[in-house]
Computed example of a mutant assay.
Amino acid sequence: MHRVEAGDRTQELREGLNRRVIQAFAEGRLVLYRLRSPWHTPSALAECHEVNGVWQSAMVVHGSWKTAEDHIRVTTWRDLPGQDFEPDVLPGLAAAPEEELRVGVDDLTVPALLRRASGVWQLRTAVGEHHVLVSGRGAPGDLALETVDDIAPLVEERRAHLARLRGTA
Rank of each mutant, 00 (worst) to 15 (best):
E50D: 06
L114T: 08
H49Q: 10
E156I: 02
R166D: 15
R158M: 09
R34W: 00
E99I: 13
H130P: 02
R9I: 13
W121H: 06
P38T: 08
E98N: 08
G141M: 06
E98A: 15
H71F: 08
R36C: 03
I22E: 14
G82M: 09
D142R: 03
G167H: 11
Q56D: 05
D107V: 09
E99R: 15
L101W: 06
R102T: 15
Q23I: 03
A152K: 09
A112H: 03
T168V: 15
D107R: 13
L133G: 04
A112W: 04
V31C: 04
E15N: 14
D142C: 06
V51H: 06
T168Y: 08
S57I: 01
L143Y: 02
L114G: 03
G63K: 01
T10Y: 09
E69L: 13
L133M: 12
W121C: 02
T10L: 15
S43V: 03
E86K: 14
W65R: 15
A163Y: 07
H62I: 04
Q83I: 11
T10D: 14
A112R: 05
G7N: 09
A6L: 15
G82A: 10
V31D: 00
A68T: 14
V134Q: 01
G119Q: 11
D107A: 15
E69W: 04
R137Y: 04
T67W: 08
P153A: 10
L93C: 11
T168W: 10
E12Q: 14
V60A: 01
E156P: 01
L113S: 15
G7E: 13
D70F: 00
E15C: 05
E100H: 13
D150S: 08
A96D: 10
V132C: 05
A95F: 07
D107M: 06
R36F: 02
W65A: 12
M59Y: 00
V105Y: 03
E47V: 01
V134L: 11
P87I: 09
E50G: 00
H130N: 11
A144C: 06
Q56E: 13
R19H: 12
D149Y: 04
T76S: 14
Q122E: 14
T168F: 08
A24L: 06
H161L: 14
D142S: 10
G82K: 09
F85G: 05
D107Y: 09
T76I: 06
S37R: 13
V155S: 02
S43M: 00
L114V: 11
V105R: 03
G16W: 12
Y33N: 00
R164W: 09
P42R: 01
R116E: 14
Q122D: 05
L162S: 04
G141W: 10
H49W: 02
I22L: 15
L17Q: 12
R3Q: 11
F25T: 02
V60P: 00
D107L: 12
A152D: 12
V60W: 00
G16H: 11
L165G: 13
D106I: 08
L101G: 05
Q56T: 04
V54L: 05
G119A: 12
Y33G: 00
L114P: 04
R158D: 06
L30H: 04
V60M: 01
T109I: 10
V54T: 13
E156F: 06
S118P: 03
V103C: 02
H130D: 14
R115K: 12
T75V: 11
N52E: 12
D84W: 11
Q11N: 10
E99H: 13
A144T: 12
